[in-house]
Design a protein around this nucleic acid. Structure first.
Length: 575
RNA sequence: GCCCCCAUAGCUCAAUGGAGAGAGCAACCGCCUUCUAAGCGGUCGAUGGAAGUUCGAUUCUUCCUGGGGGCACCA
């Protein structure tokens, strides 16, 4: 619910202006600008807010002097209203310092900002599918990784103005489900569970809780019952993890409407299948044949039953046909061999390869101290996601999963997670929020605005009546703004960091991962705590400085709260 | 055997081909009569190995070593 008009983020607007200037300059030299002209944060030893290596790229094309090009660009950049200084540094960087007035306006933006941004470029319509665990057992702790990645990414993409649906695919048909039914039947009848069946204790529990009439149920009926019961636990676990899918899509829906047959017919008409030894095979496209996928795959077995491959193709076709031109799938790395296969099939059906993204995340290794925890579902020796959440807490769990890039093989030490709860980085971020809230509570007692909301009211009043009565110097505009030289380093660093928030989300979109945001929040917290130690916010003797710092920490609070929210982590008002 | 992923500080992780590789935890030394010490300041400490491409490589290429995963008419 936007409470006020949101202006375009500072760095985004500035980026556009800088690119415009660079293109103009290049045009005047008869040059083409290279495709990407990214903004970068400068390294720690460089005193600047933004760092550009554009001249180095241009020099490569022109074979000219990087320093001369950098100087020409810096000359243009320094004329932009937000830029205080554009300097050149060897071997050809342009470093920008922003004006404090612009930074402060951006902090106000962070305070006022409530809703999603206007999308950069065109608005994307994306269906993101994740977790999709088979309902043949409880949800494993490892599913937490995919759940966190998918949910946080969906939240971030929505914040960036895109339309995103979240879906969980349920394999409620096929051999695994049959086996589930037979395993439950064996449990019910007190017979030994089949060798290749499911041996977990959850089926014993399920057998004990069967309704009276289940005594006469067939294995098929039992499997249907078990799938429903287990899916229900998945849904409970996801809710407890604060992941709320728009839809749980059952494979049986596809069978009910003959979607597999329809898909197979289309593939046939496209000449993408052939028969061999009684089975129907998908013929790989030429390009794929020599690459990662080493052989053709079966769509329909000799016994006439379809494979999961065919069902998956039909499912993805269904997603496209529901009006989503872009699909994101999040899979564990153990499915990586499946990517070229599915991609090949979708391409054969005429779907653009660029619209299908698979995020593979490496598997997690659960440890109890020095001992690896076995995770085989059939052996029945595994850690439920719910147990993990109960033990460690949702916030710590989600932050832990969100911090790592999907490609990292992460180690989750249960003992460590349990023992070191207080030292978990997530509390470092949450503590920022609690401290800001605490300052505002104290501010209220001393005649200052008692909350960011109250401060917002005061600032808005000031905006509406800039020359109005201001017995209290609450708004940072005009007189309340410290002279530029009077900014403490800690204050300025925070303002700059706040300004980088939207760029961080853009990085998440680019990487299709929330982990840049988690890193950003840790860095923001790492700037706030020193500020808190050094800069006292509430100072009755200096009401203007107090007003400015209240605005600053309100901006910090807004940013950290929004960032944590995007990761699905709570922002407590006290700790 | 073939294919994919990973290797960064004692540990867990960051770093769109950019500058002097950043955090947190652990260790050691300090800091609470002032808005929350789940905090702050300081010290120690790293790109697995060898070539190559580049003005510039943790990042790209090749090889090697070590770890994980995958190669079903299973999912």
């Amino acid at each position: 619910m936007p409470t006020s008009e949101i202006s375009e983020p500072l760095l985004q607007a500035l980026h556009d202006a800088l690119v415009g200037q660079a293109r103009e300059w290049a045009g005047s030299q008869g040059l083409d600008v290279p495709g990407e002209l990214p903004l970068a944060a400068p390294p720690s030893h460089v005193k600047a807010d933004i760092s550009l290596s554009w001249a180095l790229g241009l020099a490569k094309i022109t074979k000219g002097s990087p320093m001369a090009i950098a100087a020409a660009l810096a000359g243009r950049f320094s004329r932009l209203p937000e830029v205080a200084e554009a300097s050149v540094s060897s071997p050809g960087f342009v470093n920008l310092r922003l004006k404090e007035t612009a930074l402060l306006a951006e902090a106000e933006n962070a305070l006022f900002h409530a809703g999603p941004y206007k999308p950069r470029g065109s608005k994307r319509k994306i269906l993101i599918e994740f977790v999709s665990a088979n309902p043949t057992g409880p949800l494993h702790a490892a599913s937490g990784r995919g759940a966190t990645l998918g949910d946080a990414l969906a939240r971030i993409l929505r914040m960036l103005g895109h339309e995103v649906a979240m879906e969980y695919y349920v394999n409620d048909c096929g051999r695994q489900v049959d086996m589930l039914g037979r395993s439950l039947e064996a449990r019910r009848d007190g017979k030994p569970v089949p060798e290749d069946g499911y041996h977990g204790s959850y089926l014993e529990d399920l057998a004990r809780q069967l309704p009276a009439q289940a005594k006469t149920w067939s294995a098929t009926e039992l499997s249907r019952y078990a799938v429903d019961a287990l899916l229900k636990t998945h849904q409970e676990d996801m809710r407890a993890f604060d992941v709320h899918f728009d839809r749980y899509f059952r494979e049986s829906e596809l069978h009910a409407r003959k979607a597999l047959e329809a898909t197979l017919d289309r593939l046939k008409s496209l000449g993408a299948v052939y028969e061999k030894e009684g089975a129907v095979w998908f013929k790989r496209p030429e390009e794929a044949a020599s690459a990662e996928d080493d052989k053709d795959r079966v769509l329909v077995r000799a016994d006439g039953r379809p494979t999961y491959f065919l069902a998956d193709i039909a499912y993805h076709e269904d997603k496209y046909s529901r009006g989503y031109p872009e699909l994101i799938d999040i899979w564990g790395a153990d499915h990586h061999g499946y990517v070229p296969r599915l991609k090949g099939a979708l391409e054969a059906l005429g779907r653009a390869p660029a619209g299908f993204h698979v995020i593979l995340h490496q598997l997690i290794r659960l440890m109890r101290g020095n001992e690896a925890v076995k995770m085989s579902k059939r052996a029945g020796e595994f850690v439920r996601l719910k147990d993990l959440v109960d033990e460690v807490g949702k916030d710590a769990c989600r932050f832990f999963f969100a911090m790592r890039s999907p490609g990292s093989h992460l180690v989750f030490d249960l003992e460590l997670a349990k023992k070191q709860t207080a030292e978990n980085p997530v509390y470092y971020c949450q503590y920022v929020h609690a401290r800001v809230c605490s300052i505002f509570r104290e501010a209220g007692k001393r005649g200052f605005p008692a909350s960011p909301e109250a401060l917002r009211g005061a600032v808005q009043a000031e905006v509406r009546a800039p020359s109005g009565p201001s017995g209290e110097a609450l708004a940072p505009r005009g007189a309340a703004l410290p002279a530029e030289a009077a900014f403490a380093k800690e204050e300025r660093d925070l303002l700059v960091k706040i300004a980088w928030f939207p760029e961080t989300l853009a990085a998440c979109e680019r990487e299709l991962s929330p982990h840049p945001l988690a890193t950003y929040l840790l860095e923001l917290a790492g700037l706030f705590h020193p500020f808190y130690e050094k800069c006292r916010v509430l100072d009755p003797a200096d009401r203007e400085r107090t007003a400015f710092r209240l605005l600053l920490i309100a901006g910090v609070r807004g940013t950290i709260a929004r960032g944590l929210e995007l990761l699905g982590v709570s922002a407590p008002e006290s700790m």
